[in-house]
Nucleic acid binder design. Structure first.
Lengths: 336, 336
DNA sequence: AACAAGAATGGAACCGGTTCCATTCTATCA
DNA sequence: TGATAGAATGGAACCGGTTCCATTCTTGTT
């Protein structure tokens, strides 16, 4: 049983296909009587318009591609949820691409942003390089970034510099002067920028407090809990170990907590630990952290993108989203 | 600058559109010389075929819809990752739908499975009702379930009955006789079945060990950590409290751990706790759990679906995936 | 050289919508 | 009543691919 077509509806209603189309698309110049006839035929035939045919005719794919590295979980989940939520009532389909290798990232950055394939592109956490951006712009595929950056692209901005500053200030206000930072490599093949921005904020807060930066207090590694655990071990084994550690994400903060446990160090009495994200498990762990509006970043990214599709902006736009300190029990006043 | 079309390529190569199509689709009956001419023209024009036009012509949407409730995180993430992985090298686009309310579930179950919209449907964790299934079958949309069940649909099966039995047997082997089960409501509006199956396994293991089931030892609630925490409080406040608790998911196990902490109960010395899933944080918490192959369930679901699209099976198929006990430090031998 | 068979090719028809223009209908005004 | 203007309508052309059949070309056989 083949699905009914617009011609079937037109025939059944005794009208022309143009009239059926006008009814389907709420166009004027259809009499009430004719309108009713068409609706009856549509119902009788259980007709649904073919999205493919419609897209070809309109020359729009009605598709938004979302490229996101799943390994940034759990933060990407809430961002993606915001994206899906914002697109759910639009006419666009959300097509998903997960990146786990730089090869995959490069392939998707090359193959996905084509006008005949997608109407818009949303990239989460992966900052594109100039050549990538040149291609997106040349293809005239509206592109928006979330948790990523390029000067020529619009983006939903969570101010990670301010977030890093906030985290570090919190530790400073608790009396800490030996404050370490555990993060991803600031320079990394996926071109993540959030650890870098949080580092910038960390440095700014130190400077503002007149605390000299100690290179040994910044440990960089691959993203992950285990890697953060090892970095924390290195820090705790220093001749003059830090009294506080700011981890660039909650996942990494957990690794730091593990290292403290390994070393028999009491948190927050002997070591304060602050994370970033406020993922769900942070509450259970009573982890002090910086909360970023993950869901809202997804929603705002989509809003920017839909606007860029409808009305291409002359220059890159930015929507700013605030971070917030959530003080729990892994940070405490420095005691001698 | 409008994207080049097949007609542009044909003109530039000095051939007919049928010949270009044969080259694009690796059809025979194209001479080497002509083949080269077409490839050169394609390259010169940076031509990419329009997926929409192709889909309309082929009468295939080349789209797989995935309907999944994000609130089952973190387990859905790894399933979805398996799905994306399995579809990445196929010709299909993965279109994502998140369900957070039964209204949304119903809307998607009604609107998405249409032949003119999708070539196949993958449903994660949401068991469809008879009326839903009738509609999928009538629409002739191949549908596969992952972590869900209906007798008329194919599915990737993780044997949750066996998993529940395994968890409970582990506790029994440690000497426990007062074993409680904390789960979602067995009857729930989303029609989740995994808690019910794990409950079945729990009951089977009790019966096999000659341990009578005590209704007070089964606490049901909404899915979530806080809810599990409250249920655990109820159990621990019983006149004859359990010495072990099997939580239907790791997330709920964390809630149970919180309640034990709240009540000053030592784990595993005074209370053994076992979860289900082996989510990432389980290792940090040293949680004993049942590991299910989440990624593989996504991959297998897609394999089943692609096969069902290519060769519709006469009856519902099943692929079985095993569970495994991961004994860590939240379960221990019962001490008087 | 003529014929036959198979390879190679071109392009009209088709997929199922949207749109725009020619045509018809309707209502109003002089 | 006839003319005019605006509303309503039908359907051909179009979107950009795929396919299949009529036609042409090429090669081998007699």
């Amino acid at each position: 049983m083949t699905p009914a077509t617009i011609r079937d509806v037109a025939k059944r209603a005794g009208v022309g296909v143009g009239t059926v189309s006008r009814v389907l698309n709420d166009r004027p110049f259809v009499s009430d009587a004719t309108h009713q006839k068409v609706l009856s035929a549509i119902e009788a035939l259980d007709y649904t318009p073919s999205p493919i045919a419609r897209r070809l005719s309109l020359r729009k794919t009605l598709t938004i591609a979302v490229i996101v590295p799943f390994f940034t979980r759990p933060s990407f989940v809430e961002r993606l949820r915001g994206v899906e939520f914002a697109l759910a009532d639009s006419e666009y389909d959300l097509v998903l691409f997960n990146v786990e290798t730089t090869d995959k990232r490069d392939a998707y950055f090359h193959d996905v942003p084509r006008r005949e394939r997608v109407d818009g592109l949303l990239i989460i956490s992966l900052s594109p390089r100039d050549a990538d951006v040149e291609r997106f712009l040349q293809a005239k595929v509206p592109t928006v970034l979330v948790d990523a950056r390029h000067p020529r692209l619009s983006r939903a901005v969570i101010d990670d510099v301010a977030g890093g500053r906030l985290a570090t200030q919190h530790l400073i206000e608790l009396g800490h002067r030996k404050i370490a930072y555990v993060s991803d490599f600031l320079e990394n093949p996926f071109n993540f920028v959030s650890s870098r921005d949080r580092h910038e904020g960390y440095r700014q807060a130190l400077t503002a407090a007149g605390i000299p930066f100690q290179p040994a207090y910044h440990q960089q590694g691959e993203h992950g809990r285990q890697q953060a655990r090892e970095m924390a071990h290195t820090l705790l084994a220093l001749p003059d170990p830090p009294t506080a550690i700011f981890a660039a994400s909650d996942t990494q903060a957990i690794g730091v907590l593990e290292a403290a446990q390994d070393a028999g160090i009491s948190v927050p009495e002997d070591l304060s630990v602050i994370g970033y994200d406020d993922i769900e498990i942070a509450e259970y762990l009573q982890l002090t952290t910086i909360r970023q509006p993950l869901f809202a970043s997804g929603v705002e990214g989509v809003e920017l993108l839909l606007e860029a599709i409808a009305n291409p902006p002359p220059t890159a736009q930015q929507v700013h989203l605030p971070t917030r300190l959530v003080a729990r029990r892994t940070t405490g006043r420095l005691v001698d």
